[in-house]
Design a protein around this nucleic acid. Structure first.
Lengths: 94, 94, 94, 94
DNA sequence: CCCTGAGGCTTCGTAC
DNA sequence: GTACGAAGCCTCAGGG
């Protein structure tokens, strides 16, 4: 039998079935929806920055290229740091 | 001639060319990077909610279905509003 | 090894390699190009209809809204039909 | 005053208002819908060709690249033709 | 490995 | 005629 939610620890003994889990689920969905809204807000902000940059004469496409490069540089750096960290640990320098 | 940034009205006479635009550009890129970090944070939060829901016995896939349905309902409503708005405008009721 | 096309079962023994796959590929590309041309023609026709409508005093934006509405109605109807079909089948009425 | 449809030349004097424009509009919408259906058909055909190509071992992505190149070649050629045409005309060779 | 959903690019319509 | 904004198409990444 497919159960919806576990309801382990349900304390609604005899109170009319299922609405607790329903509320719990609804709450979870609303949290996700709220977060998605925030994400959309951020995305819009990013668009705004690009628009502003464009209006100042910068090429959005070139900017995206630069962002990509910078991101790669950053992760390469983190990679190196991680390796160094392992070395230090191995040498008892941590 | 491909110009980088506008620099219309640059007043940094003789100070070493172009670093003002460079700073401006760097600032814009950093704003985008900051926002992208935030976006990633939000995305992680969403993942966390799904993980939590799953640990409580809810099916993530079903949740996504529900979210989709709810989103569709919402946008259908907005669609209707938009159409009414067009009608009102056409009828001079705006 | 990156293979171009399958050429499994090539029977062009000694005839000069690869031109069969090349012809096959060329034919596929030409089919796509032909279809894209047709698609462009259709798109142009649609533009023409909107232009004509506009010249008769209809608002293209409102028309697009109406088209969207009608499409939604249609797919809702199809949805209902699908459900009914399932019911009929379940009831042995098919 | 925003008028819906021009109705310039309406000959339906006193016949009950507006249905002529309504029919005209409906006809325009149906023409668009018909064309959109055709467009969808074409798009599906294109998908089919790519599917077939893929099943024969060709890489759809590479094919898209080739199509882009061929399109550029074609328009470059047309460009050259146009220039030559201008020259011919200027030289009275048309 | 497929497939759906998000993001970016291109093109079209519009307003100045 | 040009520049801006929006819509549709295509690509790519994440999840099932």
């Amino acid at each position: 039998m497919p159960e919806v939610g576990h309801n382990s620890g349900d304390r609604d003994a005899g109170m009319g079935g299922g609405h607790v889990a329903a509320d719990e689920l609804r709450l979870l969905l609303e949290r996700v929806e709220r977060l998605k809204e925030e994400a959309k807000g951020i995305a819009d902000d990013i668009k705004d920055v690009f628009s502003e940059a464009k209006s100042r004469g910068y090429d959005p496409r070139a900017m995206r290229e630069l962002l990509k490069e910078r991101a790669m540089k950053r992760e390469e750096r983190q990679e190196r740091e991680a390796i160094l960290s392992v070395y230090r640990e191995a040498l008892g320098m941590e």
